[in-house]
Computed example of a mutant assay.
Amino acid sequence: MNRHNLQAKLIARLWRLLSRRSPTTLWRLATAIEPLYALLAVRERRVTRMNLRQAFPGMEKKARRAQIHASLRHSIATMLELGLAWKGEPARVEASIKEVKGRELLDRAREEGRGVIVLAPHFGNWEVLNFWLSSHFPFTAMYAPPRIGALDPLIRRGRERMGAQLVPTSARGVASLLKALQRSEAIGILPDQEPEWGSGEFADFFGHPAYTATLLPKLVSRTSARVVVGVARRREQRNGFEIHFLEADERVYAERDEALSARGVNASVERAVALDAMQYQWEYKRYRKTPGERENADGWRERRFYHQGRRKP
């Protein structure tokens, strides 16, 4: 058995074990793990600090340190909850969703014969959101295989088990999304994942330019779909989740102006983040690409940005 197969087997066993635990227990476990994780995960802590500094400038060191630890705690909880979302008994997962707010946005669009584009940022537990959407609506989403190929069957089964259709991140996948919208179904898009050069526009995200995908206006221009933001937020009691569907910023419908639509996408994500900023995945390098730097996305400017200020937060 090679190293990746062994890793996949161990991870699958861990998720199977965690799938029997309640959200409250998983949160307590995340809280216990976080101090050690923050000490060892140097890259994640550094990127989280830099992104939070960009998004919320002028904060005192003590408050910033608390932000970083809270953000990492939520990220750990997300990883632990994957067992519940992908392998837990469906009735238990459904019971962990205590409330659904804004469902009428989806129902109204479908009653009008429109498809629904759900912008699902990396907030709270997006796999719980996928579970709920695919349990209640015909639902299609793009899927890119993980770096550890041996995990692909496990993740795919987890995401598809309630009926979701996964399509590749390619022209064929985009065609499948269009067909789903034309059937008045729901599709999911990750609005805060940095695209390849040539597939996006720079638009402000918390006041700083972030390279943002322009798939959305292409889909809007060819359908009558409505756009909403969807997240699964951990409740304050940490005993389950609340599903929130929010109206998207009206600029997302600027189908002939991709830059304006991208600004609407990021403004829509900011609306979701406002529900609880620390539940957003701040350790992702959202500002990795910079305006005017298209020749080398992983060049020295990225390293300078994300490695500056190495002092402790």
Results as ranks from 00 to 15, higher is better:
residue 118 V to C: 10
residue 137 F to W: 15
residue 158 G to H: 13
residue 244 H to K: 02
residue 199 S to W: 09
residue 169 T to A: 15
residue 198 G to P: 03
residue 144 A to Y: 09
residue 177 L to A: 07
residue 247 E to V: 01
residue 162 M to H: 10
residue 138 P to E: 15
residue 113 G to M: 11
residue 110 R to T: 08
residue 211 Y to E: 09
residue 110 R to Q: 15
residue 173 G to T: 06
residue 241 F to I: 00
residue 180 A to N: 04
residue 242 E to K: 01
residue 114 R to P: 05
residue 130 N to L: 05
residue 234 R to P: 13
residue 152 D to C: 01
residue 251 R to S: 12
residue 151 L to K: 03
residue 245 F to N: 05
residue 167 V to W: 02
residue 163 G to E: 11
residue 129 L to H: 10
residue 207 G to M: 12
residue 173 G to I: 02
residue 218 K to C: 08
residue 156 R to I: 09
residue 208 H to T: 14
residue 185 E to W: 11
residue 135 S to L: 07
residue 152 D to A: 10
residue 212 T to N: 08
residue 223 T to G: 11
residue 179 K to T: 14
residue 131 F to E: 02
residue 201 E to I: 03
residue 196 E to Y: 04
residue 177 L to Q: 12
residue 234 R to F: 11
residue 107 D to R: 07
residue 240 G to K: 08
residue 113 G to V: 12
residue 131 F to S: 06
residue 133 L to A: 11
residue 183 R to D: 11
residue 160 E to P: 03
residue 187 I to H: 06
residue 231 V to N: 06
residue 123 F to N: 05
residue 173 G to D: 13
residue 204 D to Q: 14
residue 113 G to I: 13
residue 212 T to C: 06
residue 120 A to P: 00
residue 152 D to G: 03
residue 198 G to D: 05
residue 227 V to D: 03
residue 184 S to P: 11
residue 107 D to V: 11
residue 220 V to G: 02
residue 183 R to V: 01
residue 210 A to I: 13
residue 148 I to G: 00
residue 216 L to Q: 04
residue 112 E to N: 15
residue 115 G to Y: 03
residue 214 T to W: 02
residue 198 G to Q: 08
residue 168 P to W: 14
residue 109 A to N: 06
residue 123 F to T: 07
residue 118 V to P: 02
residue 250 E to F: 09
residue 188 G to N: 10
residue 109 A to M: 06
residue 167 V to C: 12
residue 199 S to N: 15
residue 236 E to C: 02
residue 131 F to L: 08
residue 108 R to W: 01
residue 222 R to S: 09
residue 149 G to V: 02
residue 209 P to V: 15
residue 190 L to A: 15
residue 202 F to R: 04
residue 123 F to P: 00
residue 234 R to C: 10
residue 232 A to F: 12
residue 229 V to L: 02
residue 126 W to P: 02
residue 120 A to S: 12
residue 169 T to K: 14
residue 187 I to S: 05
residue 219 L to F: 09
residue 137 F to T: 11
residue 251 R to C: 08
residue 120 A to M: 14
residue 225 A to V: 06
residue 136 H to T: 14
residue 247 E to G: 04
residue 114 R to T: 09
residue 148 I to V: 14
residue 109 A to H: 07
residue 212 T to W: 02
residue 144 A to G: 09
residue 201 E to N: 12
residue 158 G to C: 15
residue 236 E to D: 15
residue 222 R to P: 07
residue 189 I to T: 03
residue 129 L to T: 05
residue 239 N to E: 15
residue 166 L to M: 10
residue 137 F to P: 08
residue 252 V to G: 05
residue 186 A to M: 10
residue 183 R to P: 00
residue 250 E to Q: 14
residue 211 Y to R: 11
residue 108 R to H: 13
residue 187 I to V: 14
